[in-house]
Design a protein around this nucleic acid. Structure first.
Length: 258
DNA sequence: TGCCATGTTAATGC
DNA sequence: TGCATTAACATGGC
C-alpha cells in the first residue's frame, strides 16, 4: 500500500516528534519484523527522518540508520494504540512511543550502515532527460520497468497505473520503443502526480494511515486504478483490467495505445 | 471456500 | 547481463 506519497506523508508527520530525540528502548513482537538485537538501538539519537523511495529511514547519531520497509500493510504510529498487529515499539526519551503495526508482516525494520542499496534515483531528483535515458535502456514492458525500484524508486502499483494513464502510455508498451518525448512526458506526469498525491496525504485504499492514524484522500482522485468497467474520465471508454508483471493493471484501451 | 490484494526477494531458466 | 516466471512470506476481505 504505501508508495512514495504515503511514505512522504508518514515522514512529515514523524519528523517533529522524532528528530533530535533519543531512543530509550526498542521491543519486537514478531520474529519476522527484525533480526536485529533491539538493545543495540537503545541510546541512539535520531538526527533525521528521511524518505527513501517508499521506505522510511531513521538516521542515527552513530552514522547508521534504521531502515523501515512498510511492505503491504505497515504503519508507523506516533503515540498510537498498542494492538494485535503491533510488531515493534520504540520508546523515546522524554516520552513518546513509535509503534510499527503491520497486519501481513511483509514489513521490516533493520539497522543499515549505508543507505541506498540497489535503489534507483528518486523521481524528484532526476531530470526528465535522465529518466528517459534510463527507461529506454531497458527492454521490457513500461509498467514492469516503473515498478522496478532500481529504475526509479517510489512507484508501486497504484501510482504506476495512474501515471501511465496521464501520460497516455499503454502499460505493456516496450520501453525501448518509447519515443523520447513520450518518455520525458511520462517523467513530468509522474512528478505532478506524486506532488498532488502528497498534497492530499496519500491514497488510503484499504488500510493505509499516516503517523497520526489519519487516512489520505488522494484515492478520490484516482482515474483508473481500481476503476475497471467504469468510464474513462477522458473519453468514456470503459477502463480495462489486465495483468502485467503479475499485477492488476488498469488502463483505458482507447487513450493508451501501444 | 477460494481467490485476490498496495511489496520485496530468492531461485531458476533462457 | 538482462529479462521473465514462479514461489514465498501472513493475513483479511469479498
Amino acid at each position: 500500500m504505501p508508495e512514495l506519497p504515503e511514505a512522504e506523508t508518514i515522514v512529515r508527520g514523524l519528523r517533529p516528534h522524532v528528530e533530535g530525540r533519543r531512543i530509550v528502548s526498542a521491543e519486537f513482537y514478531a520474529r519476522r519484523v527484525s533480526s536485529d538485537a533491539p538493545q543495540e538501538w537503545a541510546g541512539r539519537q535520531v538526527i533525521a527522518v528521511r524518505r527513501q523511495g517508499k521506505q522510511v529511514l531513521l538516521c542515527l547519531d552513530s552514522g547508521a540508520s534504521i531502515l523501515i520497509k512498510l511492505g503491504m500493510t505497515g504503519a508507523l504510529l506516533w503515540n498510537g494504540q498498542f494492538g494485535p498487529y503491533t510488531r515493534a515499539r520504540l520508546e523515546f526519551e522524554g516520552g513518546g512511543v513509535l509503534l510499527f503495526d503491520d497486519i501481513r508482516q511483509f514489513g521490516s525494520l533493520r539497522l543499515v550502515e549505508e543507505a541506498g542499496g540497489k535503489l534507483g534515483p528518486d523521481p524528484f531528483e532526476i531530470t526528465a532527460e535522465d529518466f528517459a535515458a534510463r527507461l529506454r535502456r531497458r527492454n521490457t514492458q513500461v509498467k514492469r520497468a516503473l515498478l522496478d525500484q532500481s529504475l526509479v524508486r517510489g512507484l508501486g502499483n497504484i501510482y504506476t497505473d495512474e501515471a501511465l494513464f496521464r501520460a497516455q502510455i499503454h502499460p505493456r508498451a516496450r520501453t525501448r520503443r518509447l519515443r523520447i518525448d513520450r518518455a520525458r512526458r511520462l517523467h513530468g506526469e509522474i512528478v505532478k502526480l506524486l506532488e498532488e498525491a502528497i498534497a492530499l496525504r496519500g491514497s488510503s485504499i484499504s488500510d493505509y494511515v499516516d503517523a497520526q492514524g489519519e487516512r489520505g484522500t488522494f484515492q478520490t482522485r484516482h482515474q483508473v486504478y481500481g476503476k475497471a468497467g467504469q468510464p474513462c474520465p477522458r473519453c468514456g471508454t470503459p477502463i480495462t483490467r489486465i495483468v502485467v508483471a503479475q499485477r492488476g493493471t488498469h488502463y483505458c484501451p482507447r487513450c493508451q495505445r501501444i
